[in-house]
Amino acid sequence: MTTRGTDARIRRPLRRRWLLLLVAPALLSGCSMFTAPSATKSGGSDTTGTVTGGDQWLVVTRGSATPTPRPSTGASPAPTASTGGFLPLPAVARPTPSATCARDTPHFNKISALAVVPGPTSARVSWYNVGGYNIVEFRITAISQDLRIGEQRNVGWVTVKPGNPCGYLVATVPNLDRRTGYVFSVDAVVLRRSGDGTHAATIFRSSVVRTT
C-alpha cells in the first residue's frame, strides 16, 4: 500500500507538466491572432511593426474644387435694343441703278439692311430691286417691338409689283402707332423653278425704328 501511494504522488506532478507543455503553444498561437501587422513607408523603404491595441485611422487628403470648363466655341452676339431681338445686319453699300444691268434673282441665303424713314403713323421704306424673271411681287410689313399683354395688333402687308429691274422701289407702310418701335421687312415672292406654286422669304429687314 505504501508503494502504490508513493507512485501515485509522483505521477501527478508529471501529468501536470505534460499538460502545461501541451497547452502553452496553443495559448501562444492564440495570442498571435490579436496582433496585426502595420507597414509604414518613409524615404522609400518599408518597415513592418505590430499594432497591439487602440483604433486604426484612415488619413485622407481634402480635395479642392475646380472651375466648370467653358465651351470652346465662340458665342453669338447678344441682341440689343436697337436690333429688336434680331442679329445686327451688316452695312451694305447701296448699288447704283442702271438701265442695262443684268437681271438677277433674289438671293434667299442672306438678308440685307432696309432703309426706313418713319412718320407719326406710317413709314416709308426703300430697297433695291435686282430684277429676275420669276419675281411675282414684294410684300412689306412692320412688327411692333413694344409688346403688350394679350394679342398683338397686326399691321398687315403692303404689296408692291416688281416693275422695272435694277432700281429702287419705295412703299409706304400705314396703320402704325405713334412713338412705337417697329422692325420692317421686305419679302420677295418668286415662282418655283421646278413644280407649281410660289416661294416667299425675307430679303430686306431694318433695325428697330420708332415712329414720331
Score class of each variant (00 low, 15 high):
47 T>R: 14
38 S>Q: 07
138 F>I: 03
68 T>E: 05
153 R>C: 00
38 S>A: 09
157 W>C: 00
99 A>R: 04
64 S>W: 14
69 P>I: 15
90 P>M: 10
116 V>W: 08
162 P>K: 05
88 P>R: 02
89 L>Q: 05
111 I>S: 06
93 A>W: 04
107 H>S: 08
113 A>S: 14
45 S>P: 01
124 R>Q: 15
92 V>K: 15
164 N>A: 12
65 A>P: 12
148 R>G: 11
59 V>R: 13
135 I>D: 05
62 R>K: 14
39 A>R: 08
142 A>C: 01
80 T>P: 02
39 A>K: 10
109 N>V: 00
117 V>N: 11
42 S>N: 06
159 T>G: 03
110 K>Q: 11
152 Q>S: 12
116 V>H: 08
56 Q>G: 02
36 A>W: 04
92 V>A: 15
136 V>Q: 14
90 P>T: 15
43 G>T: 01
134 N>G: 12
164 N>R: 13
90 P>N: 14
79 P>M: 13
97 P>K: 10
113 A>M: 06
37 P>M: 04
50 T>P: 00
72 S>I: 09
132 G>D: 10
50 T>D: 01
127 W>F: 10
106 P>W: 08
42 S>K: 08
88 P>Y: 01
89 L>V: 06
109 N>W: 10
124 R>N: 07
58 L>V: 11
39 A>P: 02
76 S>V: 04
140 I>E: 04
82 S>M: 07
111 I>C: 00
96 T>E: 04
119 G>A: 14
160 V>I: 15
87 L>V: 13
154 N>E: 13
108 F>E: 01
117 V>G: 00
